[in-house]
Simulated scan of single mutants.
Amino acid sequence: MMTDNLSKTLCIRRGITAVIGSGGKTTLLRELARELSACGSVILTTSTHIRPFPDLPCLASFSPDSLENEAVIRSRLSVSPLLCIGTPAKEGKLSAPPLPFDHLARLADYVLIEADGSRGLPIKAHRGGEPVIPDGTRRIILLAGFSGFGKPVRNAVHVPERFLALTGAGEQDLLTPELCGEAIQKEHLADVIVLNQADDLHCPDSALRTETLSLCRRFAKKTDLPVFAGSLREHFLIRIDRES
């Protein structure tokens, strides 16, 4: 199944959605925010850290009075249905806003949260206390980067020591779809997985597409979660059938 509507494919409901993992969180958040703002109001924020979206309206200055902050957010959303919110942090990033996330969910139809950090690596394993999922979250989407397959674990995985503990692999071992799927299954942190960067699934070269699809299926067979694979930048995902 191909999709041109990511929010519908990933079953995004009103309320809080958290995006975790690695390999495309920012792209997914942007695409979901763009889609959902066509049918409701959207707050884009973080429970950890996020870089501001330079082309999106942003609120990063707050009053000590929470009621005043809520009034400002309502006013901004009445002008634009999409608003990025966060508290200024180091290196130009934003950290979590001062308002509780359940309050934000009363101010906007959809609250999209980046709830994980990965330092740009394609795969993420999680330490204790990670990811930071707010209470009341209705959907958790885990991103994994297809580009990590075939690379040494130490070069492809953020928090490799946790990944090694989960899988028994060595840090010099090549990252296989099976190892990645095994680690994600053992953590079991999400409702659905997006295997991003599998661009060749959309390739007219049937040999490349077949090879990529085979790797995606090998990954999917190691987890009981729904798996979609493809390219978020191309707005292309397919549901991976484990049985074929």
Rank of each mutant, 00 (worst) to 15 (best):
L83N: 04
L83G: 11
I85Y: 08
T87C: 04
P88H: 03
K90C: 08
G92P: 00
G92M: 05
G92R: 06
K93S: 01
L94A: 11
L94K: 05
L94Y: 08
S95L: 10
P100S: 04
P100W: 03
D102Y: 06
D102H: 14
L104T: 06
A105V: 06
A108G: 09
V111S: 12
V111E: 07
L112A: 10
A115T: 00
A115G: 07
R119L: 13
P122Y: 04
P122V: 03
I123T: 13
K124T: 06
A125F: 02
G128K: 14
E130L: 02
E130R: 01
P131Q: 02
P131M: 08
P131W: 07
P131N: 14
I133S: 03
P134A: 03
P134H: 14
G136S: 09
T137E: 01
R138I: 08
I140N: 13
L143E: 02
G145K: 12
S147M: 11
G148E: 07
G150A: 09
V153A: 06
V153Y: 08
R154F: 14
R154I: 01
N155Y: 13
A156Q: 10
V157W: 04
V159F: 09
V159Q: 15
E161D: 15
F163M: 04
L164V: 08
A165I: 00
G168S: 02
A169F: 12
L174Y: 13
L174C: 10
